[in-house]
């Protein structure tokens, strides 16, 4: 089940090259795919097909937001169900996981919030904590059950005086990853700013020092190594979302 991405191993620049390649591949792949289709219509224009697919992906965002029940909980499991070892997955190899000194680290908060003061680890640990054993479902298809604990995100947003009527929360990560959530999901009772995996602080490969755990979204919407978050009304997109993964990707 567990497969590391083999693409990124060499220079710093390679991830960007690969993203560019993917973006082009989306177009070429689509037009090639369209050529193999059995319609009599002219679907050979990759750009046109691309536009239709993007438009339908935005439509699917809306449908999923309408389907989302803010009180419906993701299934929870017991400790015996936890997948061991829990798979590492990122857009880079495990050797390239960022090394972060927890003593220097602070979470920065910006955008539509009243209190923009930074949050060192001790301050986050001072807030009420919650724990969950839930299934992480990867967009690739595999799934794994893990245990995460940390600050319920709703409580955090209330604590910093976030505009809860704003549309989005964006996340920026130490590994250049970025992602975003709709506010309804951000306020879901199982959405937490995870500090621990199992009984211990998050190990580097699972996102030390801070990971967003959202069991109502696919895995790639659970950013690791978060350094900053912001509340906004402009969709911040995301690393994969901007390349073509469906933005909402709710479970």
């Amino acid at each position: 089940m567990f497969r590391q991405r083999k693409r990124v191993k060499l220079a710093e620049i390679e991830p960007d090259l690969i993203r560019l390649e993917r973006r082009l591949f989306l177009k070429n792949g689509l037009s090639l795919g369209a050529l193999t289709m059995l319609t009599g219509c002219d679907l050979t224009d990759g750009d046109a097909v691309d536009k239709v697919l993007w438009a339908l992906s935005r439509w699917n965002d809306k449908v999923q937001a309408a389907l989302f029940d803010p009180t419906k909980l993701a299934p929870v499991y017991t400790e015996a169900d936890i997948t061991k070892p829990f798979p590492f997955n990122a857009f880079y190899d495990v050797d390239d996981v960022p090394e972060i000194d927890g003593n220097d680290w602070k979470l920065e908060v910006s955008g539509l919030v009243e209190d923009k003061s930074p949050w060192p680890l001790a301050r986050l640990r001072g807030l009420p904590q919650a724990s969950q054993i839930t299934r992480h479902i990867c967009i690739e298809g595999w799934s794994a059950i893990g245990q995460w604990s940390g600050v319920p995100f709703r409580a955090f947003l209330e604590q910093v005086g976030a505009d809860l009527k704003a549309k989005y929360v964006g996340f920026k990560c130490a590994d250049r990853y970025y992602s975003s959530l709709d506010m309804a999901t951000a306020l879901h009772p199982q959405t937490i700013l995870a500090l621990d995996y199992g009984k211990d602080p998050l190990p580097p490969e699972y996102g030390f020092p801070l990971k967003l755990r959202v069991p109502t979204k696919l895995g790639f919407k659970n950013p690791k190594h978060i350094g900053a978050l912001f509340v906004t009304n402009d969709n911040p997109g995301g690393y994969w979302e901007d390349q073509g993964y469906n933005w909402y990707s709710g479970s």
């Binding site: 989306l26 792949g29 689509l30 795919g33 339908l56 992906s57 967009i139 073509g244 993964y245």
Partner: peptide
């Protein structure tokens, strides 16, 4: 679809 993201875009369209 060319890659996973393209394939999912096709599948969900």
């Amino acid at each position: 679809g060319g890659w996973l993201g393209g394939a999912i875009a096709w599948h969900l369209a």
